[in-house]
């Protein structure tokens, strides 16, 4: 948690000079509320970790929040070798869908948002409003129509069926537009044009760098959205070798009545599957915070 509260430009000295000191009681109350919420969010994760270290029998029979016999390595081995090591494949698929999808999605969203912010053209506001409307449509609602469309071009049950829809991020476009309007000065673009730089080159060499914090935010959001998008792969894919890890774990979990041993695999697999998300957030959160704040204030 300490990483969340201390970020660039907000050191303790600054805070003291800028703000009036809050009364002790109020600060303690705030800290208490924060502590309760921290516990609330961390306990399930803690449980997941502890459960991952137990044998199947002990998972049910010992206290949930503390360790029994240490079985983590055996469990990990079980998960990674069960059914010919399909779990590893699911992880790789998820990284492919979410990683590459978020990268390309961020690029498209930034280009679109940048164009909407920096070029005046007919229908610009209408287009922007339509995209904003897209933010309101839950991705789940689109899964069935997408399935019928993809089946019309024979692309269901392929990587593309999950990958292509993941490239679209209306929220990313929105955030990119806000941030481009705020952080890319028109004068700079004028100067670039006068110096003979083409629009595309200006975008990649000047504007994109200025927009970097927002792009990290968009990337993270998109990464998490794709990683967690469960319904689309469920509808699109029938070959379990194409599954992302969420769907794979779900399939295992649905078989636990018949194969109770799989429950260990589900719990340990779920634990392993959150690690990349935690890493992505810890690594990128510095940018993420500043990007999010910018969008919030300037909107």
């Amino acid at each position: 948690m300490s990483m969340l509260t201390r970020t660039a430009g907000y050191g303790p000295e600054n805070a003291r000079t800028r703000t009036v000191r809050e009364p002790l009681m109020s600060r303690m109350a705030a800290t208490l509320v924060m502590a309760v919420f921290t516990l609330y969010f961390l306990i399930p994760l803690w449980w997941l970790f502890v459960a991952s270290t137990k044998s199947r029998g002990q998972m049910a029979s010992t206290a949930g929040l503390w360790f029994a016999d240490w079985q983590l390595w055996e469990n990990l081995q079980y998960v990674f070798t069960y059914d010919g090591g399909v779990y590893l494949r699911w992880l790789a698929n998820a990284v492919l869908y979410a990683g590459v999808g978020a990268l390309l999605g961020t690029l498209l969203a930034s280009m679109c948002g940048y164009a909407l912010a920096k070029y005046a053209f007919r229908g610009r506001n209408l287009l922007f409003n339509v995209i904003l409307g897209g933010v309101l449509v839950p991705v789940t609602a689109l899964a069935l129509p997408l399935f019928l469309i993809f089946s019309a071009v024979d692309l269901t049950n392929t990587y593309w069926a999950v990958f292509l829809p993941s490239l679209v991020s209306p929220f990313g476009v929105y955030l990119s537009r806000i941030y481009a309007a705020a952080s890319v000065p028109g004068e700079l673009l004028e100067a670039a044009r006068l110096d003979g730089s083409g629009e595309v080159r200006t975008f990649f060499t000047v504007s994109m760098r200025l927009m970097a914090p927002a792009l990290v935010t968009v990337f993270l959001f998109q990464f998490v959205t794709i990683w967690n998008n469960f319904f689309l792969p469920l509808v699109m894919l029938s070959d379990d070798k194409l599954y992302p890890v969420t769907l794979g774990l779900y399939a295992w979990n649905s078989q636990t009545n018949a194969v109770p041993e799989l429950r260990t695999a589900v719990v340990v697999g779920a634990f392993v599957a959150v690690v990349p998300l935690i890493l992505a957030f810890l690594g990128l959160q510095r940018f993420w915070r500043s990007g999010l704040a910018a969008g919030g204030v300037k909107a």
Binding site: L234, L247, Y250, A251, S254, Q255
Partner: peptide, 9 residues
């Protein structure tokens, strides 16, 4: 192809 249990999807 192996999928989730019937009612699960």
């Amino acid at each position: 192809n192996s999928g989730p249990a019937g009612n699960a999807g």
